[in-house]
Each structure stands twice: as C-alpha cells, then as structure tokens.
Design a protein around this nucleic acid. Structure first.
Length: 781
DNA sequence: TGCCCGGGTGTTTTT
DNA sequence: CACCCGGGCA
C-alpha cells in the first residue's frame, strides 16, 4: 500500500473514506489531483470493479492524465475500464446508447457553437425576425442558460417572468425561436453542447428504468471541480448518486470562475443540505508554490466576502517577490515579459516549458506573441480558434458528419455546394423551405424531391440527385469500409484534396497540410481501433471530435512557453507565471464592475492565476493599450493594490496608482517597437524594413504544434519532417511531397515566414515555414 | 454563381 | 483593427 505513504494525514483520510457522501475542499496546490487519483486507485485496490466507478473531470486532458496515473498504481487493464471524462463526453456516450429512448439516432451529431449559431441564424431569418435585434450570439446564450437550468422551450414560453423580461428586452418571440431551434436540432438528429446535459436529465426524468440502471451501475461517483458545476450537472450527479450515495465531490470555492456558463457556487454550499451525513475534508497545505505566492494569493482572496473559511499554508521556501512590470504600451509589455523570460531562462538554465503567460482575454495574446517571436522564443497558444474550427477542417468533417448522419442540417448546408457543384443559395433556400413546410429534415427532401414537391429545374434536380447518391454510397458502406479508407476516399473523390493541393498560395498549402493532418488523425484512430479490436468506423471517430479542446493536446516532447487565458490555465501549474494586463476595465473586466458578485469572480480569477505559479509569479500592466483599433489609457488594476505589499516588488517609478501621463512618450530606447508592432502584418514600410533586418539572422520558427492533434504519421519522432526550427537561404532541405530542394529566399516575419524553395523535381515553391514539414539536409558545400 | 470591396460591428471567459 | 456580411459587378 505504498501509495498511501505518499499522502499527508488529511489527504489519506479523504482517500480512505470511501463509503457515503464526502466533500473535499481543496485549496490551490494542495494535492487535489493526487487525492482523486489515489482515491480511485484505492477503490480498485480494495476490490471495487472499475466499471462501477464514474469520475467526472473538468477537461478531457485531466481525465487522461488521471487515468495514466491510476494505471501506474493498479495497471492499465483495470484503469481503462473506469468511466472517466468530462460531463459532456461521459453523458454523450451514455446518450448514444440510450438515444432511441429520446427519439434520437445513436449516431446523433454534436453541434458546436458555430453550428448552433448558424442554425439559429436561419431560424431567426425564417421567422422573419430582425437579426439586428435577435442576434444569434445573444439568443444562443439565452437558450444555453435556459437549458443549463433545465427549462424546456415549453416551460420557457409558459414562464411569466421569462416572457416579461424578453419583452422588456425587445425580443418577445425568443421563446418561439428556442422552440423552433430545438425542433430543428431534433429533426437534424443533432444535440448542442447544452443538450448533452439537458437531454441526460430528460432521459433520467422520463425513463426511470434507465436511471435505475445507471444508479446501480455506478456505485462510486467522483466529481472534480465541483464549484464549477451548473444546475443541470448538479441534478445529474444527485440522481445518479441517489442509490449508493458513495459520492465524493472535490472543489474549491475560491476557484469558482465559470458562473457565466451557469456554474453555481451554491452547489458546494448546498452539499451539506443534500447529504446531511456527509464528511468534510479540508486540504489546506499547499505543496505547489512558494510562501510568497501562497501568502500573496491569500491576501487577494481575503478581499472577497463570499467564501468558505480556510487557511491555505505552505512549508515551502519564501521564494522571490512578485515583480510588477509596468510598460508604456501593450507591445512594450510584451517585450518586457519576453525579455524577462529570456533573462530568467538564461540565468537559471531553464526550459521554455517552465514558463506560462496568462491573460484575461484572448485578444491579449497578440502583443505577447509578437515579442516572443522577435526574441526567438518558441511558444504555443492554447485556446482561440482550435484545429477543428478551421474552415477546411469543418468542411471535411461536415462530409463525415453527413455520411454518418444524413439528417445533419448544418453539415448538409455546408457541403452541398462545396466544392462547387451548381447548387446555389437559391436552391438551398428552397430545400429549407420545403423541409419546413413538410416538417422533415433537409435530407428527406432531397432524397425524394418529387414526393416533397421541391420546385427546382431539371438540371438542378440531377445535380442534387448526384450529390445524394454520393453521400448514400458512403453511408451504406459505413460498416464495411474502415474509417481511414473512407475518410481518404471522401477527401479524394470530393476533390477537396486536389483543390487544396493545387492552391499553391501559402494559405492553400497550410490548408492542405491541415487536411492531411486530419486524415492522419483518422488513421491514428483507425489503427488504434484495430489494435484494440474495436469498431473501426468513421462515425465512431466523429463521436468525440466536437468535444475535444485545445487543452487536450499538449506535447511534452516540445519545448515552448505556454500562452493561454486564465480560464484555460485552471488546474495547471508552471514554475514561472506571468499574469499580464493588470489594468482596470481589462482585469477586472469592465463588464464585472457593476456587481459585487461579478467582481468577486474576477478576483477569484486573479487568485487562480496567481496560484498557478510554483516558483515565481510576475505581474504586468501597460499604460496604454490598443483596444478595438484605438489607443486607450489604462489605470492600474485594483488587484495590484490588493496584494499585500510585503510580497510585491514595484517598479522604480511606481507612484502607487494613477498613471503619470507625462511619461507616455514612445521614446526611451523603444524606437521602432511600438510603431512596428502596430503595423504588423500591414504594409507599413517602416515595419517591413525592420523585419528585413532580422532576415539576415537565422530565422527560428516558434514551434507551432498543430492544435489538438498528435504528430503526423508522416512525420516521425526522430525528427524527419518535423517542424523546422532554423532555415537559412542556401540550405538544402527535403519536403515530404516535393522532395529535395534548395532555399532561395526568405520573406516575411516569423511565424509567417515564407520560404521560396527550388525543387528540381517540381520547380519553385513558396511555402509557409510553419506548415511546411521540411527536413534540413546536411550541407552539400 | 462567384468574387471583390466597403461598411458596420464587436471583446470577457468555454464545454 | 479584423472579421463578417451584403451589395454590386463580371
């Protein structure tokens, strides 16, 4: 039982108390993950069948890591059978097997936010409503929060308060939009993110025998990050745990940062009410951070009124002060941070992967990126547009989706005329209209246009027929053809592959590479499935794709500085953390200033950011910042003031608060920087000249690991065709497709550096370095 | 039907 | 500033 020796007293108690309801309040860095993993391992060790354990985590990555750690204690064979994953992925899986009870096909599509908004847009249009008033995004969040609170369209429309507030906001027909949207999703055999939780509740409410089965199946339940569960999630947990009541929830009220998506901190506070005989464990010793960081974080969070009393402490060394960097501009802020990272790295002989830059909004990544790029520091951005959201990927995936579920309306609209096959908007509108009149899916209309009385001319009709036959052919061979073979054939026969291949613009090359990457992902999946003896079907591949996120794919073999929002950093830790943009109206966000609870959530966010740091935390701000195009002046964030001064190292000119407007000049040795960065990507001559100067030095490309994806199959771990770090004019290189060639020209700033390469076999090609999988060959000279 | 251009608009945070 | 959308034109 050696693993028990690795725990402190309270951790061990939490691990060993397996029967009955319990709650673990785990301060930041207190070994929460360790408790969770050992608790599960302990269950298995003491004879509990892994199939009866359900562990709900906050990210897929957390589940994967935890599984790996459990496997090292109890072995892979046992660990793999534990039900573990995010709420969304676990219940998507359950919903698939119970789909027929809800009238859904088991291979229902999961709509991502883009799909949902696009569908909402057409619903709104078809209802003749003004898109300026019924903005899809706003409508989406309204519907989302309705679902998260388990309010069905019917209940929505019969709820007086809701109707009154919608009327007050000028959107009296929002309920109808909700109803039509839900109807269309259903007809398309699709669920959106929120449906995965909503429909699970419907399943458990309307099918007691199903609930009963799962209640008995899952004898042990664990929920991580319980403070961030919403009502729909709360109810699922409560129902599932009702029979055995072996429920262990783990969380930290001080780290509740997701109220905007319905997370309810009350869930933690109500635990006592729901399970009066629960046992409470508090983990208060922090093992992660220095004394300075822990105390500074405590001083911040103590400003919040709403909190469960606890005292996080540490035995760790005092450590370095929290340094405040103050810059004149956002770009200078980036430069100061990059410089600081560089110096620290050199001084302490560290790896890039030991650093993280955290920010409040995604938009802030830009100035950081530019600075890092200039200093040749490799970085990776998490979040933002993920791999699966790129147009070319969504297009090909839409084919896959349509083949697996032909009723998928959004997929059909996406590809019916891509690549162009002469079925234009007019025709699509007619199809949609006909489908609506007949109350069926678009697919059913085009499957039998005559029966549906679809009014199109002969030419169009035959083109539609051709398209239908094409999709049907693949649909019918789903059980026969393997996932990769089918995926490849689709990419091939639709002409997508060829189109992108022929597009030799850097963007085209990038898109081609992305498609290759997707195909390689399918190949990985296919091989994995065959090795495991499972079903190698394209619809199986598709199942979880919509639920994968950026954070799920990190590559430990690569070395880079991590850039992400604070939200995305939750649960992670880094030796050196930079929290940037500490300015009023940015952090805390201007949208939070009107209410105390919102402001307190911002403060918890700052607490989360600070407690990610192990050895040193650095904070920064800029006096001016470009915000949607124009220069704005910034005040230091109130949060700076809230850190106990004993732990902060202020800049020499720090006057306490309001920025001194007289020192806002761009001088002081910063020439070039602000003006260049401002015009980055544009045609500003000054900026371009500046880049050219850099070109004389070897261009080192930040390692941009394709998001979410494993390494390509055609690039192996030995570095063949790996992303190239340094390319110079005159170098001999090898390209996976074009073969050997010579670099003749480099242009543009990293990471968009384009290389002109002469390939004896295929002529001159202009390639984007970050995407071209080049291998540098030994010099022939 | 498809491409290009200009105007309007928008920023929290994510499964 | 950057993206999306709609209108105008080939």
């Amino acid at each position: 039982m050696s693993y028990l020796d690795e725990l402190n007293d309270s951790q061990r108690q939490a691990v060993q108390h397996t029967q009955g309801p319990s709650m673990v309040i785990a301060g930041a860095g207190s070994g929460k993950t360790r408790v969770l993993t050992y608790r599960i391992a302990h269950l298995v060790k003491t004879g509990v069948d892994p199939f009866t354990i359900l562990a709900l985590t906050f990210t897929n990555k957390a589940a994967k890591e935890m599984k790996g750690r459990i496997a090292s204690v109890v072995g892979y064979g046992e660990a793999r059978n534990i039900w573990m994953g995010t709420f969304h992925s676990v219940f998507a899986r359950i919903l698939r097997s119970e789909a027929s009870k809800l009238g859904y096909p088991s291979n229902f599509t999961i709509y991502d936010t883009q799909d949902s908004k696009s569908l909402l847009k057409s619903v709104i249009k078809e209802m003749g409503l003004d898109e300026k008033i019924y903005k899809p995004g706003v409508v989406y969040s309204r519907i989302s929060s309705a679902k998260n609170n388990l309010i069905s369209p019917r209940e929505y429309m019969s709820n007086q308060d809701v109707m009154i507030s919608d009327e007050a906001s000028g959107k009296p027909r929002l309920g109808e939009v909700y109803m039509n949207y839900a109807d269309r999703c259903f007809k398309a055999g699709a669920m959106d993110f929120d449906d995965l939780l909503f429909k699970t509740n419907v399943l458990f409410r309307d099918h007691p025998q199903a609930l009963h089965a799962y209640q008995h199946k899952f004898k042990y339940l664990l929920v991580d990050e319980y403070q961030d569960t919403n009502y729909a999630q709360y109810l699922i947990v409560r129902k599932l745990a009702a029979v055995h009541e072996n429920l262990c929830v783990v969380g930290d009220d001080a780290q509740s940062i997701y109220s905007f998506r319905g997370a309810n901190i009350q869930n933690i506070l109500n635990f006592k009410r729901d399970y009066p005989d629960y046992v409470l464990f508090k983990l208060e010793q922090n093992y992660r951070s220095t004394q300075t960081i822990v105390e500074a974080a405590n001083s911040i969070i103590s400003k919040n009124k709403d909190q469960i009393k606890k005292k996080v402490w540490t035995d760790n060394a005092q450590g370095e002060s929290i340094e405040l960097l103050r810059a004149n501009t956002d770009n200078e802020e980036g430069r100061m941070v990059a410089q600081n990272i560089f110096e620290t790295k050199m001084r302490e002989q560290l790896k890039e992967s030991q650093f993280a830059i955290l920010y409040r909004t995604n938009a802030q990544s830009r100035s950081m990126e530019e600075a890092l790029r200039k200093m040749n520091i490799p970085y990776k951005i998490f979040g933002g547009l993920s791999f699966y959201q790129r147009k070319e990927i969504k297009d090909l995936l839409a084919y896959f989706r349509l083949i697996c579920n032909p009723k998928d309306e959004e997929a059909l609209k996406r590809v019916i005329n891509y690549p162009t096959r002469g079925i234009g908007q007019t025709t699509i509108d007619k199809i949609v209209l006909t489908a609506r009149e007949r109350g069926t899916s678009l697919w059913e209309v085009i499957l039998d246009p005559i029966q549906s009385a679809l009014q199109v001319n002969k030419g169009t009709a035959s083109k539609i027929k051709e398209f239908v036959t094409f999709i049907e052919r693949f649909h019918h061979s789903l059980g026969i053809t393997g996932s990769y073979d089918m995926a490849y054939e689709v990419a091939q026969t639709t002409g997508i592959l060829k189109d992108l291949y022929n597009d030799k613009s850097p963007e085209g090359v990038a898109r081609y590479e992305n498609i290759q990457e997707l195909l390689n992902g399918v190949k990985d999946f296919s091989e994995q499935r065959r090795a495991d003896g499972g079903d190698d079907r394209l619809d199986e591949f598709l199942m979880d794709v919509a639920l994968l996120t950026d954070a799920d794919e990190t590559d430990e073999n690569e070395d880079y500085v991590s850039l992400m929002t604070i939200h995305a950093a939750k649960g992670l830790e880094f030796p050196y953390v930079y929290i940037v943009g500490l300015e009023e109206n940015l952090f805390p966000s201007q949208l939070s200033l009107s209410s105390r609870t919102d402001l307190e959530e911002e403060r918890r966010l700052f607490y989360v950011a600070m407690t990610r740091a192990e050895r040193r935390a650095t904070i920064s701000m800029a006096n001016t910042r470009y915000r949607w195009g124009n220069l704005t002046y910034c005040e230091p964030s109130r949060f700076i003031d809230e850190i106990d001064k004993a732990y902060v190292k202020f800049p020499p000119n720090w006057n306490g608060q309001v920025s001194d407007m007289s020192d806002l000049g761009f001088g002081g040795g910063m020439e070039g920087w602000s003006s260049f960065n401002r015009q980055s990507g544009g045609a500003g001559s000054e900026g371009l000249n500046f880049v050219k100067k850099q070109d004389t030095a070897p261009v080192r490309i930040p390692i941009h690991v394709p998001r979410n994806f494993k390494k390509l199959n055609n690039t192996n771990d030995n570095g063949d065709y790996g992303p190239v770090e340094e390319v110079e004019v005159g170098m001999d290189v090898e390209h996976p497709r074009f073969g050997k060639g010579k670099v003749v020209k480099l242009e543009g700033g990293s990471p968009d550096t384009k290389a002109t390469i002469f390939f004896p076999g295929s002529g001159k090609k202009v390639l984007l370095l970050k995407f071209a999988k080049l291998k540098v060959l030994p010099s022939t000279a």
